[in-house]
């Protein structure tokens, strides 16, 4: 009996010696000590509910700019999507099948977005599937690619440049994520947002710059605008099988996958 305990103890000691040290993690954005750090006063506070404005000069789509050149891999999707559209069908409509919209499309859905700004972060909760996005403002770096859990909204880290919040988002998932119809976003994507308030704080303008060397060449840019809506709150919303049973456009017969 005593020999058994001894062997077990030796085995555990040996296992512990073989383990590498756990990485040092940054303090949570909500950690009191992090919140209490002295920081310059931010030039604006996004706390509130925001709705993408829409309209002809402010489309919800992130369409390729004129002259855009896709990679061969992305071109296959783009051509297939164009063919499906001509047949009155959707192409890889992953959002309709309950996959998250992801950045940047989550920002321009018709549902409003609640934004809560604290000294260390901005939390964005979309009325569309309650998608959560966090923009860290506490000076942390992007997570080690070997440790990060990739996501549809990516990992967003912001810093202030004058009256502008510059947000760098990386670490996206590698599939089921689309920039526009037939244009895949991959794990190589990176999106820079330059956010500023306009119209005396009643509107938010974001200039987008997106790169994804696995899908297209160079940088693509768009500018979108949101307006503050003071009569709307975010409510629970889920993509459910029961819902899709009653959405004719999500049926297999309407989709090319």
């Amino acid at each position: 009996m005593r020999t058994g305990f001894l062997l077990a103890g030796l085995a555990m000691a040996s296992l512990a010696a073989a383990q590498t040290a756990a990485p040092e993690l940054p303090p949570s954005a909500l950690a009191p000590a992090n919140l209490a750090k002295t920081r310059p006063k931010p030039p604006f506070d996004l706390t509130g509910t925001w709705q993408h404005g829409g309209g002809p000069n402010n489309p919800f789509q992130f369409s390729p700019p004129p002259g855009a050149k896709l990679t061969p891999a992305a071109q296959v999707h783009y051509d297939a999507a164009r063919k499906a559209r001509a047949e009155g069908k959707a192409y890889h409509d992953d959002i309709g099948q309950c996959w998250p919209a992801g950045l940047p499309l989550i920002m321009t859905r018709v549902w409003p977005i609640a934004m809560i700004q604290i000294p260390t972060a901005i939390y964005m909760i979309s009325g569309f599937m309650n998608s959560v996005r966090t923009i860290f403002l506490d000076g942390r770096q992007h997570t080690d690619p070997d440790l990060v859990v990739r996501s549809f909204n990516g990992e967003s880290i912001g810093h202030w440049e004058g009256d502008t919040l510059v947000v760098d988002t990386r670490n996206f998932v590698e599939d089921h994520h689309w920039l526009d119809n037939g244009i895949p976003l991959t794990d190589a994507a990176r999106i820079i947002e330059r956010m500023r308030l306009i119209d005396k704080g009643a509107a938010l303008e974001i200039e987008y710059t997106a790169i994804d060397p696995k899908s297209w060449e160079g940088e693509w840019k768009w500018t979108k605008r949101w307006r503050r809506v003071n009569d709307q709150d975010i409510t629970e919303a889920s993509c459910l099988p029961d819902l899709n049973e009653h959405m004719p456009s999500t049926k297999p017969s309407q989709n090319v996958r």
């Binding site: 009155g88 456009s249 989709n255």
Partner: peptide
Amino acid sequence: SAHHSMAGFDRNKTVTLTGTVKQ
């Protein structure tokens, strides 16, 4: 306003349906 593609709907056509609400 949709959580999915609208490609499957014919926006150039409108149908008038007379019937009974089931749900």
